[in-house]
């Protein structure tokens, strides 16, 4: 009962609980929070406490003494550490309601990977409830991504969405507000980073950190050969000598490094196309498939997929926030139509 009253003072939220970033969309305010899904935990006298969450926690990485560890509570799009996820959500929900004097108790819509098991879905639901939400609804990520990208999900037209997140890539064919086919592969931005780290280790004999790998990917990473060759100076610890060394990488090398994870994504997309009913496949062939998620910001990924599949491929507007925005719109549609289970699962 109190939750309901507190709810009057809380905003409805749509949370994209991602492996790499957590985004929160608030109705009529848009994206209000976009922070890394990282929690810094301090171990003090055998007691754990939260030292920092989000950007602060990520900033602390590598600059703190040993009693503080940074944890990413989500792995492969699902909860790996229940308690820490709950603390993180609590922090984020509170942060969104910063100027509210009553403890917030919002309605929350959470986006989950479509291959998440019943147990994993329940874990997310429980976690969000424990973090203070009064009502939790789940929606499949590709559906939210499609709505966020402004695709005609409610029409009897097939659309294919490829959502490349931090931990997973979700591929789904959507028609008439439903997911006709979905496939999830556990390859995403993180795997790109790992591939770059492994490549640098193999070819340069140097070890680089996650943050450096991510920077390399963002600055010169490419998925398709291009005439313009970009370069970046990187410093890493030489494995043989044990001292930091500087070296230069170019975009062609990174293209080579990313071959394996990219191949997995391409194969998954092809498999999805094979499984799509012919009517919907022809719709997709006409209009093309849409890329969303942070991974689609990798240069040339749309060209690679277009060449491999022979279909037009487009990147959605502002792909990073598509899922969270779509979740918010879905919440709005559900409310306005007066139904509680449309689109949700």
């Amino acid at each position: 009962m109190f939750k309901k009253i507190r709810g009057l003072f809380s905003n409805d939220l749509s949370i994209d609980l991602g492996t790499a970033n957590t985004l929160i969309y608030v109705r009529e305010r848009g994206i209000v929070l976009n922070e890394p899904s990282v929690v810094a935990i301090r171990q003090h006298n055998n007691q754990k406490s939260v030292a920092a969450v989000g950007i602060d926690a990520k900033r602390m990485l590598g600059r703190t003494p040993g009693n503080i560890t940074a944890i990413r509570p989500l792995k492969d799009g699902v909860i790996a550490d229940f308690q820490v996820t709950e603390k993180m959500l609590q922090h984020f929900i509170k942060k969104v309601h910063e100027n509210s004097f009553i403890r917030p108790s919002p309605r929350v819509l959470v986006c989950v990977p479509c291959q998440a098991t019943e147990v994993e879905r329940r874990a997310i639901r429980e976690s969000v409830i424990s973090a203070g939400a009064r009502d939790v609804r789940l929606i499949e990520e590709p559906m939210a991504a499609a709505i966020g990208a402004g695709l005609p999900v409610h029409e009897a037209v097939g659309t294919m969405v490829v959502d490349i997140g931090g931990g997973t890539t979700e591929i789904a064919v959507i028609s008439l507000n439903g997911v006709v086919y979905s496939q999830s592969v556990r390859v995403g931005g993180d795997r790109f980073d790992d591939a770059i780290t492994a490549y640098v280790r193999r070819t340069q004999g140097s070890l680089i950190g996650d943050a450096t790998a991510e920077r390399i990917k963002e600055e010169i990473g490419t998925a398709f050969p291009s005439d313009i060759v970009r370069e970046i100076d990187v410093r890493g610890r030489n494995l043989a000598e044990g001292i930091p060394r500087s070296f230069t990488l170019n975009s062609n090398e990174i293209l080579e490094a990313l071959q394996e994870p990219l191949h997995i994504i391409v194969q998954a997309v092809k498999a999805a196309l094979e499984q799509t009913p012919p009517e919907l496949a022809s719709d997709i062939a006409e209009s093309g498939l849409v890329l969303t998620g942070g991974g689609s910001l990798l240069r040339g990924l749309d060209q690679l997929l277009a060449n491999e599949t022979g279909l037009p491929v487009i990147v959605a507007e502002d792909p990073l926030t598509c899922v969270a925005r779509g979740g918010g719109k879905a919440l709005e549609i559900m409310d306005n139509l007066g139904v509680s289970d449309l689109l949700s699962i």
């Binding site: 402004g150 209009s287 093309g288 487009i314």
Partner: peptide
């Protein structure tokens, strides 16, 4: 052309 999201994508390509 098909819906807005597609048009913007086509324009970019």
């Amino acid at each position: 052309l098909p819906k807005q999201a597609f048009v913007r994508g086509y324009l970019r390509s």
